[in-house]
């Protein structure tokens, strides 16, 4: 098991052979979290088909440790793939609140980023999912290629590795980030 980061030195380093590894808690927790991101399948529209293709055999996301879970209670990542309408936004916020910490949101496709091609005359389209939930990674495209989605996931993994679990000084990720949430609104 190779963990990134500087080796911890000290008087007991190397005294116990290969069976013992010294590292810090942040690294281990972040490594574990990034290597088993379980997405909640939140496919709404066309991007859902590309998300399915990303889960298929050619672009396989299983090698990243991602197993799609149908329920928010058992998932850590919500990939909002597709257009969010106003009718759906309340349900989206409710599902986001049902996820357990630590949770991350990846906005896939232009519709989820900022309304996409429907930004102008879409009276029923939410102009960007970051109006209701805080977003960590935005993946542009209409629809983004499965490789683009995987790149977005890799970026998220990088961000997770930079997270500081025990010695957090400022909110860094996910629901604790300073991203704007539409406050008074969506009950």
């Amino acid at each position: 098991m190779i963990l990134p980061g500087p080796p911890v030195t000290g008087p007991i380093q190397g005294k116990f052979g290969d069976g013992l590894i010294f590292t810090n808690v942040d690294l281990v927790l972040n490594w574990a979290r990034k290597s088993s991101l379980w997405p909640m399948t939140f496919g709404l529209a066309c991007c859902a088909i590309e998300m399915m293709a990303a889960g298929g055999t050619r672009f396989d996301w299983d090698r990243f440790g991602m197993i799609p879970r149908g329920t928010p209670r058992q998932s850590d990542l919500m990939i909002v793939a597709g257009t969010v309408t106003l009718k759906m936004a309340t349900r989206l916020k409710r599902l986001y609140e049902q996820m357990a910490e630590p949770k991350y949101v990846l906005s896939m496709g232009s519709c989820a980023n900022n309304g996409g091609p429907y930004w102008r005359h879409g009276y029923h389209v939410l102009k960007g999912v970051d109006e209701v939930v805080p977003v960590d990674v935005y993946v542009p495209g209409c629809p983004p290629r499965p490789e683009a989605l995987l790149y977005g996931v890799m970026k998220l993994q990088e961000m997770i590795m930079e997270d500081r679990v025990l010695r957090r000084r400022q909110p860094s990720l996910g629901s604790l980030a300073g991203a704007q949430m539409a406050p008074e609104a969506v009950k």
Partner: peptide, 9 residues
């Protein structure tokens, strides 16, 4: 839940 106002566009 996916009404995207196609006809208005």
């Amino acid at each position: 839940y996916l009404h995207r106002c196609f006809e208005k566009h």
